[in-house]
Design a protein around this nucleic acid. Structure first.
Length: 478
RNA sequence: GGCGGCGUACCCAAGUGGCUAAGGGGGAGGUCUGCAAAACCUUUAUUCAGCGGUUCAAAUCCGCUCGCCGCCUCCA
């Protein structure tokens, strides 16, 4: 298995520190507002990475934090006149609702910053003792120049950064590059007791403290969006390695952005679409498919047209499953003899699809290629069924293909519903003004018309349903 | 300004030295069907932004040019 490591800028063979076990830490959200599609991408990407590592036999311990104290949370609380805890709770709940909808599994450990103040204080104390941090009027800063490897993740050196540094408002710092570990609290802000006076932790320190607590002083994978590389992850490395003297993380993994008109979707630009509003128009599986149809490191241009295409693709998948089910229910087909050459070819293909899927995922989690493999199988299943196979052997092969489809889908956590569930959900999303019962009635009426060969009436009903966005597909039995 | 990335068909998107450049969507033609739809078949890139170089061999490596984007401030 190969993973692209931001630290080395190369794809590397994945070898966990402790064979068979993988410890991964992924930066979660700051709970100050609802999540947009960019958050969804990161969550889904690492959800799939976790699922695939497990599928490949690794024992995975997944940690994902929630930042529940921070400038933006404080600002929002002030604006609304409520407590920071209330803001953090509200948006954590929203976050979980969105993630559950999108099929993102919970992490094994989901630590919150406010519940780990002690660990952070201990870490900061250690850094001060070791001479990496200094205290100015109750604020503690990390002195970047003391950590010689600073810049190794984001590939820049101190001189370049000094040259590019923007006007720094905080004059207490020795260098504009130094960053806060502990911030003295102002009036009305949440604060905790610390050796430097009442205050709250800086943003970066929480991930170092919590990852060390739950995963140890060195672990396998640390992930997040590419915008966290600098300064967040760079700072995490500085803090952690200065404290322990050991390598912090073996593989750094970063996902690419969602763009709108080629520009990064972000809060500050205001060009974002929330998960909630997208889910009003599209099934969650469509969103998941859309995000996985591009490699995780490439940018994805947000587009309604692409989401609709994703919907069509998924529909193709479920149509095929429906055909498989129909085949299996048709007991008459159990008789007869399977054409041996077609069966043999199909059997070979089934085995190769599984291998190709594995190769794709082993190559830096290439979900786009992996989905391609699934659709290759879909086409072949349709082809096989088109030949009207019958007999025991054919039955076994069709059952086997369904099994393979289910297995591959489960790794990506898509394609795991029944066609019926898919169509019902589609009706909900499309706001079809019909209930399932209405439709069945119409179908029965049309069926009667067809029996009488009253084509005009039958077509009228079909047309009416089509106007509502429902497409009837006739089968042999009607 | 510094650092990094990207540019593959009508659209989206895999492919990073060598068998026919995946897959999806769309278009065109056909098979099937009461008519449709779906499905299947054929077709839609002798070519990978442009130019030059390395090599027996390049979309893939190197250089330059053009265009787009990201990070350098909070950001998934």
């Amino acid at each position: 298995m190969k993973i692209y490591n931001t630290l080395t800028s190369k794809k590397e063979e994945f070898v966990p520190l402790d064979s068979g076990k993988v410890d991964m830490y992924v930066c979660g959200i700051t709970a100050y507002d609802v999540c947009h599609l960019g958050h969804a991408r990161s969550a889904i990407v690492f959800d799939v990475i976790k699922r695939y590592l497990r599928h490949s036999g690794f024992q995975v311990r997944h940690t994902r934090n929630i930042t529940d104290v921070d400038d933006k949370i404080i600002a929002r609380a002030k604006k609304e006149g409520v407590s920071t805890g209330e803001i953090a709770n509200r948006y954590s709940e929203e976050y979980y609702r969105d993630m559950d909808m999108l099929g993102v599994s919970r992490a094994d450990i989901e630590p919150k910053a406010t519940e780990h103040i002690k660990e952070m204080v201990d870490l900061i104390k250690g850094l001060v003792e070791r001479g990496y941090a200094y205290d100015v009027n109750g604020n503690v800063y990390f002195e970047v120049s003391k950590f010689s490897a600073y810049g190794k993740l984001s590939k820049r050196n101190l001189d370049e950064m000094m040259a590019g540094a923007r006007v720094e408002v905080d004059e207490r710092k020795k260098s504009p590059l130094d960053f806060a570990l502990w911030k003295a609290s102002k009036e009305g802000e949440p604060s905790w007791k610390g050796p430097w006076g009442p205050g709250r932790p800086g943003w970066h320190i929480e991930c170092s403290a919590m990852s060390m607590k739950y995963l140890g002083q060195g672990f396998d994978i640390h992930g997040g969006g590419a915008d966290l590389i600098f300064p967040h992850h760079e700072n995490e490395i500085a803090q952690s390695e200065a404290f322990t003297g050991k390598p912090f993380v073996k593989y750094w993994v970063h996902n690419g952005f969602i763009t709108v008109d080629k520009e990064k979707m972000s809060k500050s630009l205001g060009n974002f679409f929330t998960i909630k509003e997208i889910l009003e128009k599209y099934d969650p599986e469509v969103v998941r498919y859309f995000l996985l149809a591009t490699h995780y490191r490439s940018p994805i241009e947000f587009s309604d047209a692409q989401l609709s295409e994703a919907e069509v693709s998924i529909d193709r998948y479920y149509s095929t499953v429906l055909r498989i089910n129909d085949f299996e229910e048709d007991t008459a087909l159990a008789q007869g003899v399977t054409e041996p050459r077609a069966a043999e070819e199909f059997e070979k293909l089934l085995a190769s699809v599984k291998d190709k899927f594995k190769d794709a995922m082993d190559d830096d989690f290439n979900t786009a290629l992996a989905l391609g493999c699934i659709f290759e199988l879909i086409r072949e299943v349709n082809k096989f069924l088109d030949a009207r196979p019958s007999g025991q052997k054919a039955g076994e092969l069709v059952a086997k293909s369904k099994e393979v489809l289910t297995e591959l889908g489960s790794v990506l956590n898509i394609f795991n519903r029944t066609p019926h569930e898919w169509y019902i959900s589609l009706m909900r999303v499309k706001n079809v003004g019909f209930t399932e019962g209405d439709i069945l009635n119409e179908i029965t009426r049309r069926h009667e018309a067809r029996q009488k060969k009253d084509w005009a009436a039958a077509d009228a009903i079909r047309k009416e349903l089509e106007g509502k966005g429902i497409i009837l597909e006739d089968k042999k039995e009607g």
